[in-house]
Amino acid sequence: MENSFDEKILDEANDWIKANQKVVLATVIQTWGSSPRQVGSRMIVNEKGDFSGSVSGGCVESAVVSECLSLIKDNKPCKKIEFKVSNESAWEVGLACGGEIAVYIEQIH
């Protein structure tokens, strides 16, 4: 049996919007291999770079934050970003767990 999956990030997004913040919603839309968060996992980012929720186990959140900030800056509605396995010896953004994920970011307007 499955319980419903809801980490209440959308509720928080609404609170942020009511506080007059610009909000970008990031959602895991696809995963391949071993990835830490399931499809539907969410994160929100505001124009100051504050964020809540997660799309990985901490591996790619910083990259998602900067992508979200660019989205606000360029005033684009949405974008799909893919993250692949990282090279552990290099300081780069990627998934050390060996999985791949696609994250969809969209402005709430």
Binding site: D6, L10, D11, A13, N14, I17, L25, I29, P77, C78, K80, Y104, E106, Q107, I108, H109
Partner: peptide, 29 residues
């Protein structure tokens, strides 16, 4: 996502209605 859609989602969640969010990844609708 439109703010109106977000508000509708929250309303459906609090009334425990089953629903789905459909998103066109190309245009964001």
């Amino acid at each position: 996502m439109k703010i109106k859609t977000l508000e509708e989602i929250l309303k459906k969640k609090s009334s425990k209605t089953e629903f789905a969010i459909l998103t066109n990844l190309e245009n964001g609708n």
